[in-house]
Design a binder for these strands. Structure first.
Length: 145
DNA sequence: GCCAACGTTGGC
DNA sequence: GCCAACGTTGGC
């Protein structure tokens, strides 16, 4: 079981927008980066990830679930790009800010810290559990299955 | 709004 | 296949 992180600028697509889409989820379209696409191809239905607000907010704000595995991006004409669908699972009780993540040496290896520009990225199981805890959630309650 | 870091493109 | 030029992302 792998864990992931999805970045979005809240004025384009926010956590609230994601929640409003409900259980049906939403295409994570518009990704035009090969690394990000390749990570999405590895995602399995039911896996969990974080929803991160970039630019404004700069914090992990919620937990999402993959509801559809990689398929062609409906906003892409070229046929090169793919995306998954995700749905909101639960907000964090307390958003976990980038500052908090950077200040915690146990999270220093996160891709979020190491490669701040990658918009879809893997998160280790330990990192997932750690951020759940910092966000006021019990990781075991949030893990899939 | 600036700019560093990174990815992509295209000329050679 | 190298690398300079350019575009984009996202933290500050």
């Amino acid at each position: 079981m792998a864990y992931w992180l999805f970045k979005s600028e809240p004025h384009k697509w926010s956590w609230d927008d994601q929640v409003k889409k409900g259980a049906g989820g939403q295409e994570w379209d518009g990704v035009r980066n090969y690394q990000a696409r390749n990570f999405m191809r590895q995602m399995k239905a039911g896996e969990r990830g974080f929803f991160y607000h970039s630019n404004e907010g700069k914090a992990v704000v919620g937990v999402v679930e993959i509801v559809a595995e990689a398929h062609p991006d409906s906003t892409d004409e070229s046929g090169k790009w793919e995306c998954v669908d995700i749905k909101a699972v639960t907000p964090l009780n307390e958003p976990v800010s980038l500052d908090t993540i950077k200040a915690d040496e146990r999270l220093a290896e996160m891709v979020l810290v190491k490669n701040s520009r990658l918009s879809v990225q893997p998160v280790s199981e330990d990192e997932f559990a750690m951020i759940c805890r910092l966000g006021g959630l019990v990781a075991e309650d949030v893990k899939a299955g």
